[in-house]
């Protein structure tokens, strides 16, 4: 019994020095008898040394620089106390148990680290449901015999691992790096521009729009005809003012009214309305005999007949309203 304990302490002494020999470590792990090969691969030399340090610190409650000297003293102390007190053996057993639990935890993390290191590990059976991503991922449209490759977890926005076509893996990784580089260089503008040219946008905002928001194309010509009618109205007014007031001219204007009322053009009602308005106002100003009043009544009757025969536009109705007001 005493000789076995002495060997264990010698192993600890080797750990303190920092040099581990295979002959010394093999019997140490074989004493526990639980997956010695796996633990040997997973645990390095630094881990048990760091694990033992807090135990020493807990025992002595000393600072880090003093811990090294304390370790040496403890090493010697363990040897001396071992021969005298058997309780120290129990404490050393607890420390070794902690080491085994830590090594088990480190062994649990090894598969994840292997997955992280080896991106190109092929896995034929997909355990997770396949989820399509909107941006940058192209799923295979046909089943592939060669299997699928899992993308690295830290690069995906989702928490679930994504399996993609093995042929497309390198392309996807390359494209992701290109996009990340573009984002880092601030070359990509994520928000979309409503328009590309300021001047074209301003021009479009100035264009007239109809009901529903569409641009006016056919109605623009109608407005143009309206303008032409206004010009004719001005011309006719000037002619009437320049000429003298004679009954023959009134008769000619009445004939003109008949001709314009018969036509079905859009501009003709505007012309006839303006002529009637100017004639009536001129008649009121001159205040001639009954013959002129009779001619005025005739013109009004002709206007009513013309209105019934045609679809009354807005301006014609306005002209009729003006005539009624003038009478009153």
């Amino acid at each position: 019994m005493q000789t076995v304990y002495l060997k264990e302490h010698e192993g600890n002494a080797h750990n303190f020095v920092g040099t581990l020999s295979s002959a010394a470590s093999a019997p140490w792990w074989s004493a526990f008898g639980s997956q010695s090969v796996h633990q040997g691969e997973s645990c390095g030399q630094v881990k048990p040394f760091s694990l033992e340090l807090p135990n020493c610190i807990d025992q002595l409650a000393a600072t880090k620089p003093l811990a090294r000297g304390a370790d040496q003293v403890l090493g010697k102390g363990h040897i001396t106390q071992f021969t005298i007190f058997p309780d120290d053996c129990k404490m050393s057993d607890d420390a070794q148990k902690l080491q085994t639990t830590m090594s088990l935890q480190s062994s649990l993390t090894d598969p994840q680290s292997r997955f992280e290191i080896g991106f190109s590990l092929p896995t034929i059976c997909a355990k997770y449901p396949y989820t399509d991503q909107f941006y940058g991922l192209f799923s295979a449209y046909a089943p592939q015999i060669s299997g699928r490759i899992m993308l690295p977890l830290n690069m995906t926005s989702d928490d679930e691992p994504i399996y993609v076509n093995a042929k497309q893996y390198h392309g996807i990784i390359r494209r992701r790096q290109s996009r990340a580089k573009a984002v880092l260089d601030h070359k990509l503008t994520k928000r979309r521009k409503p328009y590309m040219h300021e001047s074209r946008h301003l021009h479009a905002m100035r264009r007239p729009r109809g009901c529903g928001g569409r641009f006016l194309n056919t109605k623009n010509s109608v407005d143009g005809n309206g303008k032409i009618g206004n010009e004719v109205h001005k011309t006719v007014g000037e002619q009437l003012q320049s000429s003298g007031s004679q009954s023959s001219e009134f008769l000619q204007s009445e004939v003109g009214t008949f001709n314009s009322s018969k036509e079905t053009n859009g501009s003709s009602p505007n012309i006839s309305g303006s002529e009637v308005t100017s004639m009536y106002s001129r008649g009121g100003l001159d205040s001639f005999s009954l013959n002129h009043l009779g001619s005025a009544v005739h013109s009004f009757a002709d206007m009513i007949d013309g209105g019934r025969g045609m679809i009354i536009p807005t301006k014609w109705v306005a002209a009729a309203g003006n005539c009624c007001n003038l009478k009153v």
Binding site: A182, D185, H186, K187, L188, T189, R192, K193, M196
Partner: peptide, 8 residues
């Protein structure tokens, strides 16, 4: 150095 939307 800005990649425009119409270029991308």
């Amino acid at each position: 150095g800005i990649i425009r939307e119409q270029d991308r």
